[in-house]
């Protein structure tokens, strides 16, 4: 993978040579225009003591300010990848930089940029919400700032619980306490590992609003999720990881367009018992009640086959009363990707 960390040619430092530079080093300037990735993962591998290879040569750049969704089935390596970037697990091979800082040789600078919300609800039980969130801020070396903690707690609807012991809170509230802890030290990057697992629909929507607000304030967000809907609704880019390998990284819109299939549903004027043999080439599906035909087509293809299908239907004496088309969801795309051999 090519990174944007290109050295500035020494001659560019000299203003007298500025014009010449502009001509000679156009490619440098173009490269410099692209902001460096906030997280850069190169050739990252992780082998556990048992010999299990959890990650195999991962290359991934996260852009500053984006919401990146990492999708993958259970055991694909999502949490391992996050754990390594955040310092909870050691890497076996490769290199990771956060904000340009190596996570091993310059771990203080790298980690101070990151807020982590792990998948499991790991909380102290007998501390108050205020104490535990303040503790996190101190742990990250930041001076006390009650106004910031207050804002975080209010944004997460936890303000009225600030003096409650964590053990008395519901699961959804505990999840928000963990987000508050991660935000206590004003991180530039927020990792949300399955943030809305076990959270009810209303609260989930509230959490999405918080995430969008964070992105608006310049925070880069990396989330893993099982809810494809969440990625579809929230993410700017999507990465799919399976069996320790990144199999795809794409803009969400591009991904939907590139791999998206459309379903055309044709509602019939009358009931049809079976489809005529002349239509076999279209791989049509007849609805159970015999009153609709479903046709899948690929939007990437040069020809969708719709025109000829409609002509052949008319020739077969099948008349249509209505139609609609639907785009396949990210979930369909995801399932087809991870099932591919």
């Amino acid at each position: 993978m090519v990174h944007s960390y290109l050295p500035v040619p020494p001659s560019c430092v000299d203003p007298r040579l500025k014009c010449r530079c502009a001509v000679r080093h156009t490619s440098f300037q173009n490269a410099m225009l692209a902001p460096p990735p906030i997280i850069s993962v190169s050739n990252l591998s992780k082998t556990y003591g048992s010999g299990f290879k959890a990650l195999k040569g991962i290359n991934l750049d996260i852009k500053r300010g984006e919401i990146f969704a990492l999708l993958g089935p259970n055991g694909a390596g999502k949490t391992t990848l996050i754990s390594i970037i955040c310092g909870i697990a050691n890497l076996s091979e490769g290199r990771v930089t956060v904000g340009g800082h190596d996570i091993n040789s310059d771990y203080r600078a790298a980690r101070s940029l990151i807020g982590l919300v792990p998948q499991e609800l790991h909380t102290d039980s007998f501390e108050t919400v205020w104490a535990t969130v303040s503790f996190s801020r101190g742990l990250f070396g930041k001076p006390k700032n009650p106004a910031h903690i207050e804002k975080v707690l209010k944004d997460l609807s936890l303000w009225d619980k600030k003096d409650s012991k964590i053990i008395t809170l519901s699961g959804g509230m505990k999840r928000r306490v963990m987000i508050a802890k991660a935000l206590s030290h004003e991180p530039q990057i927020l990792f949300l590992d399955e943030p809305t697992a076990g959270v009810d629909v209303e609260l989930r929507k509230g959490m999405w609003d918080v995430v969008r607000g964070l992105q608006a304030s310049g925070v880069t967000i990396i989330l893993t999720t099982h809810y494809i809907q969440e990625a579809e609704e929230m993410a700017d880019r999507i990465g799919v990881i399976n069996k320790g390998e990144i199999i795809l990284v794409e803009d969400k819109a591009g991904l939907m367009q590139k791999l998206g299939k459309k379903h055309l549903k044709l509602y019939l004027q009358g009931k049809v018992d079976a489809l005529p043999a002349s239509l076999a080439a279209y791989n049509l599906e007849l609805s159970d009640d015999g009153r609709a035909i479903i046709y899948d087509y690929d939007t990437k293809g040069e020809r969708t086959g719709i025109t000829s299908l409609l002509g052949d239907l008319r020739n077969a004496g099948i008349h249509i009363s209505d139609l609609d088309t639907t785009q396949s969801s990210l979930e369909d795309i995801f399932v087809s990707l991870v099932r591919a051999p």
Binding site: C86, G87, I88, Y107, R108, A109, A110, R111, S112, I114, L116, P118, E120, H122, T123, D124, S125, S136, L139, F140, G141, K181
Partner: peptide, 14 residues
């Protein structure tokens, strides 16, 4: 035991 060690390990502390 309770898992809160994640925070200590991910913090910028030696």
């Amino acid at each position: 035991f309770v898992g809160t060690i994640y925070e200590i390990l991910s913090a910028p502390v030696s």
